[in-house]
Design a protein around this nucleic acid. Structure first.
Lengths: 212, 212
DNA sequence: ACAGTGAATATTTCATTGATCGTTCAGGAA
DNA sequence: TTCCTGAACGATCAATGAAATATTCACTGT
């Protein structure tokens, strides 16, 4: 064994994550055994438990890594210069919808992992929602800073409500068998309702202002 | 046997529904056999199939009957005199939330039936949504008639969007473990967002108008 | 003809069991 | 001591087949 250059703890952790990611995406979470992951890392199964409390935590680490990239992307959209708050919100929600739809649609492995984590680690979904809420608040802060149309609302609360209202688009295939184009059309409509409200006499004004 | 007064076909159908309803609510859908229902009606199991295509159709008939009562109740709320459109929409959505929450929360039998029907008869949920959409449209028609705040929108489309945005409150326990009070608070917030929009400078005006 | 039967059939459900796999831990190498 | 191993343990899963039950249909009484 090449113990000449012992890897740091973090490096080993990463190695495990890489091996597991590879197995999970090829054969699925359920069909991957800890022994296989350990073998890929040239270590014993028992040793994995010095780096992760369990199999699920490896999956969670993979998901977290992936999700944090996504979050950064979303943050960029939320703060994009040269776009109105309304447009940024639009981009944010659509990006979210498209990403999850494509990810879960084409890749049954990803769907399996999402389901397992959602079922065994309910807190994880809450953590994701909280992160996105933070971005929504940042978006609104930025809008306020720029003097855009947003009023002095309780932003944290408003972010929660936006999430409630767009829940349908956050787990597209969990319960609706709609196609992406149909979901997009619906999200467009809901967003319109959210920004303009049911009393859209002022809508034109707001639209014009945000388009400016 | 008392063939002196043969029951009409519809009467027999009703008898079957009553017997099944009783069994289902006492022992659950899964634990009830066709033979038992037939026995309760003093007939052979085979004879049930002259009135219903199958067991699931009996459950569907029960659910339909129950749901149609509910729909009538909702319609009354949607057209209630002396209330603003906003209030009527509020009452409608809250009644819906409370009914399903209470029904599914306290009664595991009802939950079981709802799940079986939702799973085996996906069209049923669509039919329910379409009915409620009709009521939403009636609500908006009435608002227009009364000269309330609603604008000349595509009402059918708007109804769809309202449903999308309140999806979370229509199947409360399917995926959120929130308590009824929390759900109510959230629904209140979403409704506020829907009616006032994200640009609520005119909100006060609309509120005052609708409260008048 | 027709309403209804109930045994026959086809399907589903359920418990049993054997194997697999996640996890632990007593111990060995460095 | 510190790091790691791999066999042992117990929970979980899949395969089996047997029992239960939904559904059908040839037949009976009226």
């Amino acid at each position: 064994m090449d113990k000449a250059f012992p890897m740091s703890k973090d490096a080993v952790r990463d190695r495990i994550i890489q091996a597991a990611k590879c197995r999970f995406s090829h054969f699925g979470y359920g069909k991957t055994t800890m022994a296989e992951v350990a073998g890929d890392c040239s270590m014993s199964p028992g040793n994995l438990y010095r780096f992760f409390p369990g199999k699920l935590d490896i999956a969670e680490a993979i998901a977290t890594e992936d999700y944090e990239n996504h979050l950064n992307h979303l943050r960029k959209l939320a703060l994009a210069p040269g776009k109105s708050a309304r447009e940024r919100l639009h981009d944010l929600l659509f990006e979210e919808l498209r990403r999850t739809y494509n990810k879960l649609e084409k890749d049954p492995r990803a769907l399996e992992m999402a389901q397992v984590i959602a079922h065994q680690r309910p807190q994880f979904a809450n953590w994701m929602l909280a992160n996105e809420r933070k971005i929504l608040v940042e978006l609104m802060d930025e809008a306020e800073r720029r003097g855009e149309f947003l009023p002095p609302l309780d932003k944290e609360l408003t972010a929660e409500m936006i999430q409630s209202a767009t829940m349908k688009f956050r787990y597209p295939q969990l319960w609706s068998k709609l196609t992406l184009p149909k979901l997009e059309r619906e999200l467009e409509g809901v967003l319109k309702l959210l920004t303009d409200g049911l009393c859209p006499r002022r809508a034109q004004a707001a639209q014009q202002q945000s388009a400016a």
